[in-house]
């Protein structure tokens, strides 16, 4: 506290919040309000319900999203437009993770408007940023361990979208996408869904295997952790466990990642559990592949 500062009543944070939310409705003031609110969203605990219930606010955020669809293909999205949309997505992330608005957010099917962003392929920064922010919204949803979220997502194309990002995205996107798949698997219905057919199981395990393969040359402990957790969870399903006996990549069985995991007790423990549950591969069959 600076004693030289004159004492006066601090501005009411809620008044300021309300005036920023009102600015979102106004097309001319929206851009500034998006930036300001997304920067300071942590300071306003009620931001999510206020955004949701303010007349015109969700409509304005959806307009922001739909307005950049035309720049997705052919890929012409500029940095400025990407930033602006990401600010809108950051506000939707608040709505997605707030307990009072999550089910309203799902009920209005808002997550589906992010899928066109997840479906983009361009490696340029505006696209990478847009994908990552969109993954963040879905990540915020699944983080809540809410069965309704998983049931909603399983009705949609989220798993294939995540799998493709896990295959070809940046390290950070891969990590968030793998986290989403991990959270889906941790739910009983989600695990059942992925293990219901051999096709689904191998779609997931093949991508996990490829990621492990790519990590051998440049290990990321953070990413490896989510991958191992996915495998470990898959092994809770009897049929998946049998399939993993052959499908588990050899590099998880030898000491390829020993140095990388030296300091991470949790991942080492999970990996040990995984190997003991799955058991050694049948030597008469090809290993590490489907």
């Amino acid at each position: 506290i600076n004693p030289a500062m004159p004492i006066r009543p601090p501005p009411q944070p809620t008044d300021e919040l309300h005036s920023l939310v009102l600015q979102l409705i106004d097309r001319d003031q929206r851009e500034g309000a998006l930036l300001e609110l997304s920067k300071r969203r942590e300071n306003f605990p009620d931001l999510a319900p206020i955004l949701w219930h303010t007349v015109g606010c969700v409509a304005a955020l959806l307009q922001e999203i739909a307005s950049i669809y035309p720049s997705l293909a052919p890929p012409t999205l500029a940095a400025h437009a990407s930033n602006r949309c990401c600010n809108a997505l950051a506000l939707l992330q608040c709505v997605a993770s707030h307990p009072d608005t999550r089910s309203l957010f799902l009920g209005a099917h808002v997550p589906l408007y992010l899928y066109p962003f997840l479906n983009t392929q361009s490696k340029s920064r505006p696209f990478e940023y847009l994908r990552l922010t969109s993954l963040g919204v879905v990540g915020a949803l699944v983080k809540m361990d809410d069965a309704d979220v998983i049931n909603f997502l399983l009705q949609t194309e989220i798993i294939p979208l995540c799998l493709r990002i896990m295959e070809s995205g940046s390290e950070l996107s891969k990590t968030v996408a793998t986290f989403i798949v991990q959270k889906i698997l941790l739910d009983d219905v989600g695990l059942g869904y992925v293990c219901a057919t051999a096709e689904r199981f191998y779609a997931v395990s093949t991508v996990l295997n490829n990621m492990v393969g790519a990590l051998a040359s440049s290990p990321s402990v953070r990413l490896l952790k989510h991958i191992v957790r996915c495998y470990l969870r898959l092994s809770d399903n009897t049929r998946a466990r049998d399939a993993l006996r052959q499908a588990l990549p050899a590099s998880l069985r030898d000491d390829t990642f020993a140095a990388a995991l030296r300091d991470d007790v949790t991942v080492k423990k999970w990996l040990g559990q995984l190997l003991s549950v799955v058991g050694p591969p049948d030597q008469s069959l090809p290993q590490g592949a489907q």
Binding site: V21, D46, H53, D100
Partner: peptide, 12 residues
């Protein structure tokens, strides 16, 4: 719920 009940007039 508290909202939209507690929203100020211009937002509600």
């Amino acid at each position: 719920g508290r909202y939209p009940k507690e929203l100020p007039d211009p937002l509600r």
